[in-house]
């Protein structure tokens, strides 16, 4: 009896084959836009260190149409990162309190609460 197991090659675009994999890729690519925004933040720190004129120039660039457009794209992906990160946290860190598992929704809810609090603090610090 001759065995000749056949090995199917995985295609490079395997992730386009199913909706769940496309969604996964989008989730992973949020990190690209978070990274891009980090670059923007570091440029900001650089301009801040260079002085008043450089900083004002940076703020002007932020407010330019391409600057705003880039940031809005980053915002969309960053928000999607937050939503997916919070949703997955209960799986990674199941909590037990007094012998009962904490419901996943409670863990997720606490993260949304923290998100709201942090956002409020930052907005107030920025002078809203």
């Amino acid at each position: 009896m001759s065995r000749r197991p056949y090995i199917r090659k995985l295609e490079r675009n395997w992730w386009l084959g199913q909706r769940r994999y496309v969604v996964y890729m989008v989730r992973e690519l949020t990190s690209l836009f978070i990274g891009l925004y980090c670059v923007l933040l570091v440029v900001g720190l650089f301009r801040l260190a260079q002085g008043r004129a450089a900083w004002d120039g940076f703020l002007a660039a932020l407010s330019s149409p391409p600057g705003v457009l880039l940031q809005l794209v980053c915002l969309a992906f960053a928000t999607y990162h937050s939503l997916t990160w919070f949703a997955l946290t209960p799986k990674a860190m199941p909590l037990m309190v007094r012998g009962e598992p904490v419901p996943a929704m409670a863990i997720v809810g606490m993260h949304y609460g923290a998100w709201a609090v942090v956002s409020l603090i930052v907005l107030m610090a920025a002078g809203i």
Partner: peptide
């Protein structure tokens, strides 16, 4: 990133361009 980046982008990408916030 999940907690702080979105609000930062709202500030630098929306509120500053709109003039609602000055930094």
């Amino acid at each position: 990133a999940a907690l702080i980046i979105p609000v930062l982008i709202v500030i630098t990408g929306i509120l500053v361009p709109l003039g609602v916030v000055r930094l």
